[in-house]
Nucleic acid binder design. Structure first.
Lengths: 269, 269
DNA sequence: CGCCGACTTGAGCAATCTCAATCATGGTGG
DNA sequence: CCACCATGATTGAGATTGCTCAAGTCGGCG
């Protein structure tokens, strides 16, 4: 992969530690590894073994670039361990976090044919291992395997649901609420009092929630009053149910669709 | 369709003009009508004619509810004329606009089987006509037709791209920029000076851009200095290129992914 | 004419960003 | 071992953006 000089490439200078396209330790892999990709959970073994030729596993270091927005789609990749962040780069050069992928998740979109272009860039967050299979082979099998089609369609639906949820959050919740929701999503189910480690640093969490780092820090401080302790990356939640209850109280008005009928009726009352 | 009393149903009281599930003038339709759905643009006639049984066309009035978030997916629908808005309702009852569909566009997601649930509500904006086909029939044909699968996957990709763009906009642009971008997207291609009509009222545009109506009004006022005149729903753009150039100047810092390498290099210089 | 809905405008306030300083931590070299 | 530095995180102060509430305008329409 070459380093281009288009406007979209701003921020990836040669010799920089971050953003380079260097990868280490690429090795071959078999069909067994493919099962680790959630996409293939319900795909038949026959299709999987046909897919498994030319499958490779690569180890990435923090900041390694997996692919760049605007470049051609050569592989379909999955996270085996670690985290990979997806970003969009505006013509101005500004980068916006679109999502973060972890164990078993697909990185980017499933290629359906030749001549596809990456709509986002993908970069490793810390050390990570990814599984890559050649896009042309995948696209070919996609045409022949209804099971694979079904898997891709299911995955797309899940992606869309996730993105819709994100848009809803950005439009209708303030920073405190988004952080509360994020923390609740990390709490292990079952326990009301819990303790866990943040999956990545606060800078990345801030980007994920769509706020500045300082704002996130203040939001964490505000949640302390609701039973959320943090020391660096460790979080302790006094009571998950209590935090969930306080949810709307952290709220703001939000961006509605004009006035809802509920509001209208309320006015009339 | 019944009116439930769950929290999510707030705002849909019986007897309200808006939000009711009443529809008028449902009539049968043939395979010819199906071609108007963009999803089917490249689907073979055989599949299409098999899909066409039980296809119906319905006329909606402003505020008519097509389906409600949380209800079962009974049909796959397309806009034939007019606009349909997609909204999510939070447990608190607050509604957030997720998207707006117009001519030929699919409303919601393609059903893949039984037991699917609508993740959003759909409501007519002004008068509209929609085409509906039974979900079970569509799901069955989806299993048998690779062409249909390909169409659905292509559509999902487009949806994802649209949603990603929206998230990027919400995270990295301020209200002025989002409005400028929206206006630019409405300008007919080719002409530098142009004049057109806004597709729907400003309340809905505000919800789409994720701001309050008052904020939108002020954003319009600010764009006047950049050659954008508006009188009610009519817009005149002095120079599309000039507006596009002014784009970043309307900007703010935005929510980046930590500091980009570009910024780091800039500091060093 | 008078009302209604859509839109605009103004004033104040709340949330968030910006800039800057500080602090803790871990690693590095002396 | 300690001084030093880089990084991440926190905190403070002030500016900006966008929201809230409220009033006012405007164009249709009965």
């Amino acid at each position: 992969m070459t380093i281009d000089t288009s406007p979209a490439a701003q921020g990836y200078g040669a010799g920089q530690r971050k953003g380079r396209a260097v990868r280490r330790a690429s090795r071959a892999a078999g069909p067994g590894e493919l099962r680790k990709a959630l996409l293939f959970a319900e795909v038949d073994g026959g299709t999987l073994s046909r897919l498994s030729a030319d499958v490779r596993i690569e180890s990435l270091q923090d900041g390694d670039l997996l692919f760049r927005q605007g470049s051609g789609v050569a592989h379909l990749s999955f996270v085996l361990s670690g985290y990979v962040k997806l970003m969009r780069t505006a013509p101005s050069g500004r980068q916006t976090l679109i999502g973060i992928r972890s164990d078993g998740e697909m990185i980017g979109e499933a290629p359906m044919g030749a001549d596809e272009i990456h709509t986002v860039s993908a970069e490793s967050v810390g050390a990570a291992r990814v599984l890559k299979l050649p896009a042309p082979r995948f696209a070919r099998l996609l045409k022949e395997s209804p099971a694979l089609c079904a898997a891709v369609m299911r995955d797309s639906k899940a992606s869309i649901a996730r993105l819709v949820g994100e848009i809803e959050a950005l439009k209708s919740q303030n920073a405190d609420q988004r952080l509360a929701h994020f923390i609740l999503s990390l709490c292990p189910p079952g326990e009301d009092r819990c303790r866990f480690r943040l999956p990545y640093d606060k800078r990345l969490i801030a980007a994920r929630l769509g706020v500045k780092q300082e704002t996130l820090s203040r939001a964490f401080a505000k949640l302390r009053a609701h039973g959320v302790r943090t020391e660096t990356r460790n979080v302790q939640v006094e009571s998950v149910t209590h935090l969930a209850d306080q949810y709307d109280r952290l709220g703001r008005a939000g961006i509605a669709v004009g006035r809802s009928d509920a509001e209208k009726r309320h006015d009339a009352a």
